[in-house]
Design a protein around this nucleic acid. Structure first.
Lengths: 211, 211, 211, 211
DNA sequence: TTATAATCGAGACGGTACGTCGGGTCTTATT
DNA sequence: AATAAGACCCGACGTACCGTCTCGATTATAA
């Protein structure tokens, strides 16, 4: 009935947020500064987001959608690929600073946790699902026995890949380069192959998973 | 020649910091509040730490030293054990919030990054070193071929374990329970075993991932 | 276009400042305390005044405007009257402490000096101007010969009266009572009369002091 | 019985205080800074003075002792002389800043008031006493009728001179130059002469006060 | 000559206020 | 309605001084 919200403003605000994150990082980013950069009043920000954290989640989430998983011919190569492209994403100053900060904030804020989960986490599981399906099609992984265990496996692999890359890059502070990616992929693929022995597991050796 | 710094104050401050973290969480923790709880002037805090982040790193670091790796008889059981005890540590409100927050901050602050690394990260690599040595003694893992690759392997495993647990617990927000720990351990042990086939590698080492 | 500054706040702040001066005196008066009394944020104080001194000048200046000079029938009586009412004003705890303090501060702060001069000093010269005009109308003082010398005379008398009262009350710390006021008025009136001999100056003007 | 206090320290401290007053003014002068300038520990300052005000009083008091009243041949000239030399003293940055500040402080602090009175105020009344005695010797003023009224007269003149000069210089902020000094002296001498007519007042000329 | 005890420098300490900054809400006029 | 502008309340920030306190190192007297 009355004036609708400006869509252009939303876009300008998210752009401004990303720009501010690059320049200032999470902790020095201020709502007032974002508003000024976007040519918008602070009121307009608060009309649309509950605070800094929610704003940043939305601003950063779209960057994660740029991740893709082109078919590199083998599970090993696909893992290497996703590791390197995820690492490249984390190397951008917008993401590294704010991802950890928002996660930290989300431990005390359920609404933020949900927003983060559905805007970032769940949306990227597609990469693992794609990779798994492709590997199964190639015969590198056995077909899903039942949906529940397939979901468990997906989640495990997702946490493994994402967690390892994040930890290597941001906590340990070491580079995620080709060598590391190769070593990681080797370990992961071997682990998956052994846990789900491809066709006939030669020797069961410490049968780790439900045969 | 002058009055030395009170060691009791240091202790009271770190205790107060942990208590405040439990009650308030990282983002509502205040230097003034910590000082008040510790019965100490704000100045004293700033005389010893450059800010909230540095203080929290020191306060939390000791908690990580409580982690131990008792011999559970097998590499698989040792991995399960360390995963669960690390998860238990992360479940404590002092650690989860602040670890992520400090990591976030450290992306923009080199001094903090160093402090974090040497106070937390490097100190816990001992767990991986112990576990590896023990597994090698048991014959579950081959002896180190050369020191450099041993260090690479240690780092990789460390990032894998710590990263996966942190990501599962804090980012995905799913419980790290026995079932998950078992699945994770299975995958990891299998991966390690395949990458470094136990005693006499039946297949050539290099192509660990199946064809 | 934006929200205008609250006029009520200004008033509340100045009232609070005076109240705080009475209770605490200049040196224990705190910006934070004034803000709290006025029910206002500290920021609001600093948005309008540059500091404690400027605030106090404005808070105290209005008190000086209460001074009046009723016609008491003679120059001598008028002087006595203004001396006593000025002394009464200085006896109030708001004024004495803060007047001196602000003067002290103003020796190093040109902006404050100006503010003080136009808010307090210049505004009270009206008393001397009124008294002089009235005395001239009564024939107690000769009419102004030229404007410049009239201004000089006004300034001299102003400094004389104000200075003597302030010095007696605050520096010497002796009471400014009727007796002292009478003695002072006698001296001043005599001095003015002799310096400007009433009608026909019998002796040449310049040598007022004997030989 | 034990080690006595260093006399050199006292001197260094007072010098440092004056130097700091010149550079920083009263309000930015700090005890720590004075101690540092004097090459002395803060403790030493507090062992000898109760605080900034007391210290400054002592540091400045000696400057007032430099005032002298050479015989200039007439009461008028003597008044002019003392006005100008007092103004010169007040023009020094050490004195102007701190005199007013200490007076302000003393309105709330009895001990300081006493210290100020005996260290500065009372000690300078000698100038008025000398001037009066000299003028009486010259016959410009009548001899004292009784000691009480002599004291009253002395105090009145003291407050008049000191007050007027201070007010002119620090409150009004106008220069105390020869012209002003001459005008002031003329008025004062005339007032004194009329109030106490020299010997036999030839013509009562606007009988100002009851002989 | 040697205790002995006050004094000294240095500077850490518990406080209090500072002046600034950012968060989030509100008022106003404009679109 | 929704907006830009910006005043407002709140609370934390990190700093500066305060005046007190502990230190170990000097001294000048009194033993």
């Amino acid at each position: 009935m009355a004036r609708p919200r400006s869509a252009a403003a939303d876009c300008a605000i998210l752009d401004a947020t990303r720009a501010a994150l690059v320049e200032l990082g999470w902790s020095k980013l201020t709502m007032g500064d974002v508003a000024a950069r976007a040519g918008v009043a602070k009121t307009t920000l608060y009309r649309r987001w509950t605070g800094k954290s929610a704003l940043v989640v939305d601003a950063v989430a779209v960057l994660f959608d740029e991740l893709e998983l082109p078919d590199r011919g083998s599970l090993h190569a696909d893992v290497e690929g996703v590791v390197l492209s995820f690492a490249a994403l984390l190397a951008r100053p917008e993401t590294s600073t704010s991802l950890m900060a928002v996660v930290a904030e989300s431990t005390r804020d359920a609404a933020l946790r949900d927003r983060l989960r559905c805007a970032v986490v769940d949306r990227q599981k597609r990469l693992v699902l794609d990779g798994r399906a492709r590997a199964q099609a190639r015969g590198e992984l056995p077909p899903d026995s039942d949906p529940a265990s397939a979901a468990r496996q997906t989640d495990l692999v997702f946490d493994l890949i994402a967690g390892a890359v994040v930890h290597r890059a941001l906590v340990s502070g070491e580079p995620v380069d080709e060598a590391w990616a190769a070593g990681f992929a080797t370990l992961l693929v071997a682990g998956l192959g052994a846990a789900h022995p491809p066709a006939p597991p030669p020797q069961p050796r410490t049968p780790p998973e439900p045969c």
